[in-house]
Simulated scan of single mutants.
Amino acid sequence: MANEVSPALALLIDGDNVSPKIVDGLLAEIATYGTTSVKRIYGDWTKPNLDGWKNCLLEHSIQPVQQFAYTTGKNATDGAMIIDAMDLLYTGRFSGFCIASSDSDFVRLAARIREQGVAVYGFGERKTPRPFITACEKFVYFDVLSPPDADQSATQKAPPAEPARKVKLDKPALDMLGKAINATVEDDGWAKLSGVGSHLAKQAPDFDARNFGFQRLTDLVQASGIAEVTRDGENATIVRVRLKGKGASVSASRKA
């Protein structure tokens, strides 16, 4: 709808744990969830390790927040992020928070924000502790954000870049997909792919088709070998799936 208001989001970046190379992909991903009304990055800007951020911050209008490291071995940046996040939460202006960090210190923050009925989208490296991942409604790994290469001239001649990481659809992933289809199947034995995707996100916030080398969940389902895919509705925009063979009959009988 033309008058539909995009959800307002707050983006908080832990400068000690994020590289400026992923910011283009990060902001593009966040744009699919809503409009980023607040963009802040936290760190001790007197340290040389953050020098590479300057041009990126100017280009994307990200506000740097200075936080001195008061003592060795203690991360004051995390504390500043948490305080600001709670201040922003209490304004009631935001539908979601985007936290870019691979640090487990934000587990309780993510849980507290969600207790308020506000979505939390997490972004981090593969080493991110599991508790922080599961505390988020959705978690996306940095390496699937497909940042553009620094050498643009090379990429113009090269074929389209494939996702950064390819992982085989193993048994746990297939089992999770099968359970999601079974859990959302309708009376006719088919499940809407949108419902399957929502159920997968509830099971595992980091379940993402891009983690397995696919751009869309539709492609992953088709390649899985355990489900059929069909399209309905005007312009075939509604994607529906069902398990093949025994799985499909079990789904239908469960609804009978």
Rank of each mutant, 00 (worst) to 15 (best):
G195Y: 15
D78F: 12
P129T: 14
R216M: 01
A8T: 13
D87E: 09
K39R: 15
K39D: 12
H199R: 09
M81T: 11
L57H: 14
A154R: 04
A119I: 15
R210L: 02
A8L: 10
M86R: 07
A135E: 13
A85K: 07
R216Q: 05
H60C: 03
K244W: 15
I99A: 04
I113Y: 09
Q222S: 03
D105G: 07
A135P: 02
Q152I: 14
V229T: 06
V140D: 01
G73Y: 15
G124M: 05
P172L: 10
R242L: 06
Y42N: 10
T230M: 11
S61G: 05
R231G: 01
R126C: 01
W190E: 06
M81A: 04
V65P: 02
R216V: 01
L9Q: 06
M81C: 05
W190H: 11
M86C: 05
E162Y: 13
A69H: 12
G122H: 13
Q66H: 10
S104Q: 03
T77P: 03
G96R: 00
D44N: 07
L174T: 12
R114E: 07
L11V: 15
A2K: 06
T184G: 07
E137R: 08
A204L: 10
R112Q: 07
D14T: 00
I113A: 01
F214V: 08
D188H: 09
V239P: 00
Q116E: 12
S101Y: 14
M176Q: 02
S102K: 08
D219F: 10
G96Y: 14
A236C: 03
D149Y: 14
E186Q: 12
A204E: 15
Y90F: 15
N3F: 14
L50N: 02
P48Y: 13
A252L: 11
P205G: 04
S194E: 09
K127T: 11
K74T: 00
F123G: 02
D175P: 03
A2L: 11
K202Q: 11
T91L: 06
A100P: 00
P7T: 14
R112W: 09
M81N: 10
E59C: 05
R254I: 15
A154Q: 07
G213E: 04
Q66R: 10
W53V: 01
G247N: 09
E4R: 10
A164I: 00
F132D: 04
V5M: 08
D232P: 00
K166P: 00
R93V: 10
A69I: 03
G15C: 08
A76C: 05
R126T: 01
D208N: 13
Y42G: 06
S249M: 12
A191L: 11
L26Y: 07
G34W: 15
K157Y: 11
Q215Y: 11
K54S: 06
S95C: 12
G96S: 12
C136M: 13
E125S: 01
